[in-house]
Design a protein around this nucleic acid. Sequence first.
DNA 1: GTGCTTAAACTAGCGGCGTAAGTTTTTACA
DNA 2: TGTAAAAACTTACGCCGCTAGTTTAAGCAC
Lengths: 209, 209
Amino acid sequence: MARPRQALLTKERIVEAAAALIDAEGLDACSMRRLATELGVQGPSLYNHFATKAEIVDAVAEVVVAQVDISVFHGNDWREALRLWAKSYHAVLAAHPNIVPVLATGPGRRPAGLAMAEAVYGALIDAGWSRARATHIGALMRYLITGSALGSFALGFDADPELYDHYPHLHRAHELAAHRDAVDEGAFQLGLDLLITSLSDRYDLGVRR
Amino acid sequence: MARPRQALLTKERIVEAAAALIDAEGLDACSMRRLATELGVQGPSLYNHFATKAEIVDAVAEVVVAQVDISVFHGNDWREALRLWAKSYHAVLAAHPNIVPVLATGPGRRPAGLAMAEAVYGALIDAGWSRARATHIGALMRYLITGSALGSFALGFDADPELYDHYPHLHRAHELAAHRDAVDEGAFQLGLDLLITSLSDRYDLGVRR
DNA sequence: GTGCTTAAACTAGCGGCGTAAGTTTTTACA
DNA sequence: TGTAAAAACTTACGCCGCTAGTTTAAGCAC
């Protein structure tokens, strides 16, 4: 087939298919040939629309980050805004866990990531935090959110019960996987609570740097 | 060459070379052929000592985690122990950043990882935290530590100043990379402080579940 | 309308990847 | 001393990202 009368591919179609493939089968499954197959096309044809595979994956990351609600930074106290944003971010990553390793390396040049950084940092600055502290708080929130999204704590423990025979306190660790949601959600909620309440305490004491 | 009079490879030599290669050039550079070359051997020879590449990488992760100081859980108050352990863990990961993605998926079946989980969880249980809360706190610490080790927050922002023209609060974001250590260390220290002091407050109030 | 440039598909192929299979030689033990 | 296991080798398979060159259609200038 040479150039078709109607283009088979668009950037949007490619990104959509890549996102679906990554969600369904993981980053490794999303090879250029496989992705092309999903789109009914040969592998190298994708290079007519993206220069590299990294650009495609980046575009997927972009649409995922764009789903995070940053409107909460308007009209809310910085504490409440931070909490709502973190929950939204966490929920988005929970819905697309396979792309998290890409996001964990930072906003890079992605508009949605930069817009999010702008919103978070701006809100903290406007609240009166020093530039250094606002940066730290932003980084810290990212550590918590991506750290929790990156690998399930509960699933990090092998399910083989015998493995824990020699670790007296871990004798029920093989049950963690069954309570995955409660464990991982509970830890995230606790972390968010602890961080925001203690930041709030400092703030109220006037310690903003 | 057939079987040599003196074995060219041992598990230890392979793991040592793999660790050095990963530290120096990253996970991607550590291919079976490349690793074999470093050891003066052909690629498939490695399979006489390890069944898969994953086993080699896992062994590297094991020796890295084994460097974390878990002796601090003996003879220290749980708060102080947690703080000292977290700093040690953080320092180890900072010294071997390229292996962090492997650790971030959890202890799996690695003895050092399990021993660490045992020490942390055991200390929290012994201090009087409920099983659920001890699990949450352990997970939370891992989120903070691996989250901060995984990707530098400071380096996550592209160095191109023009990129930030349309983000009023980010106009100095391109300078972050230059202060990478201060930013990343400051955020981690802040997070550790906030988490431990607020956990300590709850604990002192008798809220241990 | 004709001709030129560009776009978007194709096929073929390069070097690298993890790993399987089979070969050769040495070592260790019955 | 004969045999089995160990540890190196070579060869090869099917993936991978990506490049080069080809073909045909589309869009635009004159």
